[in-house]
């Protein structure tokens, strides 16, 4: 049937055997290789690749979620730091405002007290001046009253012996003496 000797051996090979090394074996190896390649392609298409792709996508998704979570965490940390800084700043401003208010109130209070003191001192001085003036007025009035009284008494005593001219002279002398006298203060 065939002129090529190995192929003659092939077709004339024993029907059943466990092991052989001939053309039949080579063809069977090729056939089995084709079978396994075909099986690999089908299993890869139907089972391995879809599951592998799914696992890969899920891993990437989880990785993305982890990355996003890390990013969110970092953002949250930044915001928290910023918030804390703002709070610290607000606290500092509050302290500064309070200090300024305390200081301003103290200044105002001190100024008011000073003004009050000044005013009181002025009033006190004025009062002392007024008292002094009143005292002088009173002294003058008393002097005048004493002189008038003395003059009346003297007039009554000397009415019979001293004329008008002498009376005026005596009055003037008495007045001069009285003026020379120092009054107790």
């Amino acid at each position: 049937m065939h002129s090529f000797l190995p192929l003659q051996i092939l077709t004339s090979a024993p029907d059943e055997r466990v092991f052989g090394l001939d053309m039949q074996t080579l063809i069977h190896i090729i056939a089995q290789s084709v079978n396994i390649l075909l099986l690999t392609a089908l299993l890869a298409y139907l089972l391995y690749k879809p599951v592998q792709n799914f696992l890969k996508k899920r891993s990437e998704k989880i990785k993305t979620q982890i990355d996003q979570a890390a990013l969110d965490m970092a953002t949250a940390d930044t915001l928290r730091t910023q918030y804390k800084e703002n709070l610290d700043q607000i606290e500092q401003e509050r302290v500064e405002i309070l200090d300024a208010a305390h200081k301003s109130a103290a200044d105002k209070s001190r100024k008011l007290v000073q003004a009050g003191q000044t005013q009181a001192e002025g009033l006190y001085t004025q009062a002392l001046v007024d008292i002094e003036k009143e005292k002088e007025k009173a002294q003058d009035a008393v002097k005048t009253q004493i002189i008038m009284l003395s003059s009346l008494m003297a007039g009554k005593i000397v009415a019979h012996t001293v004329d008008q001219e002498t009376q005026d002279r005596l009055f003037s002398e008495a007045l001069t003496e009285l003026e020379a006298t120092s009054w107790p203060t």
């Binding site: 049937m1 192929l7 092939l10 039949q24 063809i27 069977h28 089995q32 089908l42």
Partner: peptide, 18 residues
């Protein structure tokens, strides 16, 4: 292709397993 070969029990069993 002009070459004769046996379809053996091994090949058939391989197809069944496939």
């Amino acid at each position: 292709f002009g070459v004769e070969f046996w379809i053996t029990q091994t090949i058939v069993n391989t197809w069944i397993i496939m």
